[in-house]
Protein backbone atom coordinates (compact mmCIF):
# COMPACT_ATOMS: atom_id res chain seq x y z
CA UNK A 1 0.00 0.00 0.00
CA UNK A 2 1.17 3.53 -0.77
CA UNK A 3 1.86 5.69 2.25
CA UNK A 4 3.24 9.14 2.97
CA UNK A 5 6.92 9.17 3.95
CA UNK A 6 9.13 12.05 4.92
CA UNK A 7 12.77 12.86 4.39
CA UNK A 8 13.77 15.34 7.04
CA UNK A 9 17.00 16.25 5.28
CA UNK A 10 15.01 17.88 2.52
CA UNK A 11 12.31 19.54 4.60
CA UNK A 12 12.56 23.36 4.58
CA UNK A 13 9.86 23.83 7.24
CA UNK A 14 7.95 25.97 4.74
CA UNK A 15 4.63 24.61 6.08
CA UNK A 16 3.16 24.45 2.57
CA UNK A 17 2.02 20.90 3.30
CA UNK A 18 -0.15 22.23 6.13
CA UNK A 19 -1.78 24.79 3.82
CA UNK A 20 -2.32 22.27 1.06
CA UNK A 21 -3.78 19.77 3.49
CA UNK A 22 -6.17 22.25 5.06
CA UNK A 23 -7.21 23.45 1.61
CA UNK A 24 -7.73 19.96 0.17
CA UNK A 25 -9.95 19.06 3.09
CA UNK A 26 -11.84 22.36 3.22
CA UNK A 27 -14.32 21.57 0.47
CA UNK A 28 -13.61 25.00 -1.06
CA UNK A 29 -12.31 25.45 -4.58
CA UNK A 30 -10.64 28.75 -3.78
CA UNK A 31 -7.60 28.65 -1.51
CA UNK A 32 -8.00 32.24 -0.34
CA UNK A 33 -11.63 31.69 0.62
CA UNK A 34 -10.70 28.47 2.35
CA UNK A 35 -7.75 29.65 4.38
CA UNK A 36 -7.26 33.39 4.52
CA UNK A 37 -7.60 34.84 7.98
CA UNK A 38 -8.55 31.49 9.46
CA UNK A 39 -6.75 29.33 11.97
CA UNK A 40 -5.56 26.24 10.14
CA UNK A 41 -6.48 22.76 11.30
CA UNK A 42 -4.36 20.65 8.97
CA UNK A 43 -3.96 16.89 9.32
CA UNK A 44 -0.22 17.12 8.78
CA UNK A 45 2.07 19.13 11.03
CA UNK A 46 5.60 20.36 10.62
CA UNK A 47 7.62 19.71 13.74
CA UNK A 48 11.15 20.50 14.76
CA UNK A 49 13.39 23.49 15.39
CA UNK A 50 16.06 25.51 13.51
CA UNK A 51 18.18 22.39 13.09
CA UNK A 52 15.74 19.75 11.97
CA UNK A 53 12.23 19.77 10.62
CA UNK A 54 9.89 17.19 9.21
CA UNK A 55 6.19 16.73 8.60
CA UNK A 56 4.09 14.27 10.58
CA UNK A 57 0.80 12.76 9.47
CA UNK A 58 -0.94 9.46 10.20
CA UNK A 59 1.39 6.48 9.61
CA UNK A 60 -1.56 4.20 8.81
CA UNK A 61 0.03 1.64 11.12
CA UNK A 62 -0.27 -2.05 10.38
CA UNK A 63 -1.31 -2.61 13.99
CA UNK A 64 -2.95 0.68 14.96
CA UNK A 65 -3.16 1.39 18.69
CA UNK A 66 -5.58 4.26 18.05
CA UNK A 67 -8.13 1.95 16.47
CA UNK A 68 -7.84 -0.56 19.29
CA UNK A 69 -8.16 2.15 21.92
CA UNK A 70 -11.02 4.21 20.48
CA UNK A 71 -13.79 4.19 23.10
CA UNK A 72 -16.39 5.19 20.53
CA UNK A 73 -15.63 2.62 17.84
CA UNK A 74 -15.06 5.62 15.57
CA UNK A 75 -11.68 4.58 14.19
CA UNK A 76 -11.30 1.68 11.83
CA UNK A 77 -8.85 0.23 9.35
CA UNK A 78 -10.26 -0.20 5.87
CA UNK A 79 -7.97 -1.65 3.22
CA UNK A 80 -5.01 -0.44 5.21
CA UNK A 81 -6.27 3.10 5.65
CA UNK A 82 -7.14 4.30 9.14
CA UNK A 83 -10.39 6.23 8.94
CA UNK A 84 -12.38 8.21 11.48
CA UNK A 85 -16.15 8.28 11.55
CA UNK A 86 -16.76 11.81 12.80
CA UNK A 87 -20.37 11.00 13.42
CA UNK A 88 -19.35 8.52 16.13
CA UNK A 89 -16.38 10.37 17.62
CA UNK A 90 -17.09 12.14 20.92
CA UNK A 91 -13.74 13.94 21.14
CA UNK A 92 -12.33 12.06 24.15
CA UNK A 93 -8.83 12.20 22.60
CA UNK A 94 -7.87 8.69 23.71
CA UNK A 95 -6.35 8.23 20.23
CA UNK A 96 -4.13 11.27 20.84
CA UNK A 97 -3.10 9.73 24.15
CA UNK A 98 -1.94 6.51 22.51
CA UNK A 99 -0.54 7.49 19.10
CA UNK A 100 3.25 6.98 19.48
CA UNK A 101 3.92 9.27 16.51
CA UNK A 102 2.03 12.30 17.76
CA UNK A 103 0.23 12.23 14.44
CA UNK A 104 -3.33 12.98 15.54
CA UNK A 105 -5.07 16.22 16.46
CA UNK A 106 -8.73 17.22 16.61
CA UNK A 107 -10.54 19.73 14.39
CA UNK A 108 -11.70 23.11 15.65
CA UNK A 109 -14.80 21.56 17.21
CA UNK A 110 -12.76 19.05 19.21
CA UNK A 111 -13.79 16.12 17.03
CA UNK A 112 -11.06 13.98 15.51
CA UNK A 113 -10.02 14.39 11.94
CA UNK A 114 -7.06 12.68 10.37
CA UNK A 115 -5.08 12.08 7.24
CA UNK A 116 -6.97 9.69 5.02
CA UNK A 117 -4.49 10.20 2.17
CA UNK A 118 -6.84 12.63 0.34
CA UNK A 119 -8.48 9.62 -1.27
CA UNK A 120 -11.95 10.92 -0.47
CA UNK A 121 -11.52 14.63 -1.18
CA UNK A 122 -11.16 16.36 -4.50
CA UNK A 123 -7.35 16.17 -4.43
CA UNK A 124 -7.59 12.41 -4.98
CA UNK A 125 -4.07 11.81 -3.69
CA UNK A 126 -2.10 13.41 -0.88
CA UNK A 127 -2.13 17.18 -1.43
CA UNK A 128 0.77 17.61 0.98
CA UNK A 129 2.95 15.52 -1.33
CA UNK A 130 1.78 17.14 -4.55
CA UNK A 131 2.58 20.59 -3.17
CA UNK A 132 5.89 19.85 -1.46
CA UNK A 133 8.46 21.99 -3.30
CA UNK A 134 11.37 19.83 -2.28
CA UNK A 135 10.09 16.23 -2.39
CA UNK A 136 10.59 16.03 1.35
CA UNK A 137 7.24 14.24 1.49
CA UNK A 138 6.56 11.40 -0.91
CA UNK A 139 3.68 9.02 -1.52
CA UNK A 140 4.88 5.56 -2.47
CA UNK A 141 5.05 1.85 -1.72
CA UNK A 142 7.77 0.82 0.68
CA UNK A 143 8.51 -2.57 2.04
CA UNK A 144 7.86 -3.58 5.61
CA UNK A 145 11.22 -4.33 7.19
Amino acid sequence: MKRVYVNEEWCLACHLCEYNCAFANSGHSDMVLALKGKKLYPRIHVEGDEKISYAVSCRHCLDPLCVKSCIAGALSRKEGIIEVDQNKCVGCLTCVLVCPYGALAPNEDGIMQKCELCLKNSAGEPACVAGCPNKAIVYEEREVI
Binding site: M1, R3, Y5, V6, N7, E8, E47, G48, D49, I52, Y54, V56, R59, L62, P100, Y101, G102, R142, E143, V144, I145
Partner: peptide, 16 residues
Protein backbone atom coordinates in the same frame (compact mmCIF):
# COMPACT_ATOMS: atom_id res chain seq x y z
CA UNK B 1 9.70 13.23 17.96
CA UNK B 2 12.41 15.86 17.48
CA UNK B 3 13.69 14.72 20.88
CA UNK B 4 14.55 11.32 19.45
CA UNK B 5 17.59 10.32 17.37
CA UNK B 6 17.52 10.82 13.64
CA UNK B 7 17.64 7.06 13.16
CA UNK B 8 14.62 6.59 15.38
CA UNK B 9 12.71 9.20 13.35
CA UNK B 10 13.77 7.49 10.16
CA UNK B 11 12.26 4.27 11.45
CA UNK B 12 9.04 6.00 12.37
CA UNK B 13 8.48 8.21 9.36
CA UNK B 14 10.36 6.62 6.46
CA UNK B 15 9.01 3.12 6.46
CA UNK B 16 5.79 1.24 7.15
Amino acid sequence: SAAFSQESRRQKFSRP
